[in-house]
Amino acid sequence: MSDSRLQTDNRKQWMAVLAKADWEQLDTLWQQNKIKPEYELVRGPETGLVMAQGRMGGSGAPFNVGEITVTRCTVRLSDGEIVGHSYVMGRNRKHAETAALLDGLMQDPKVGAQVAQEIIAPLQKVHAARRQNAQAKAAATKVDFFTLVRGEDD
């Protein structure tokens, strides 16, 4: 895998973690963090709509299901080189702004590793645990039906 491809994949991953983060947890982690960079807002935060598409039969041709509220933000770090973006479901502007700033910081070689460790990793851990918990509860409802009169051909 090329370096730029790897970088893109890494960035996609942290952007997803930031978008899916529980806002209260993200806010707490960010407030507690020592990194306090200067930055300017380039765009937003602003709320709009994304039309969600589905597929016929789950895997066929696309169709429009309905819209989703999304808030986006773009920031430029004070060194003027690094731009951070975010698109976050919902209407929480602070969430979008914090996510854009953290996207910028993650691209910054000076602090990226620290942000990854102190913010991205704990967010990811909580998200994974939440999913694991939901899956474990679902797994407890797995059922084995057995047919009595009607069923497979003999």
Partner: peptide, 18 residues
């Protein structure tokens, strides 16, 4: 609200199933 665009089609085959 303004429209930002469309999503890629949802991949329900990759759903986290409950």
């Amino acid at each position: 609200l303004p429209r930002f665009g469309s999503s890629l089609p949802l991949e329900t085959g990759k759903m986290s199933v409950r």
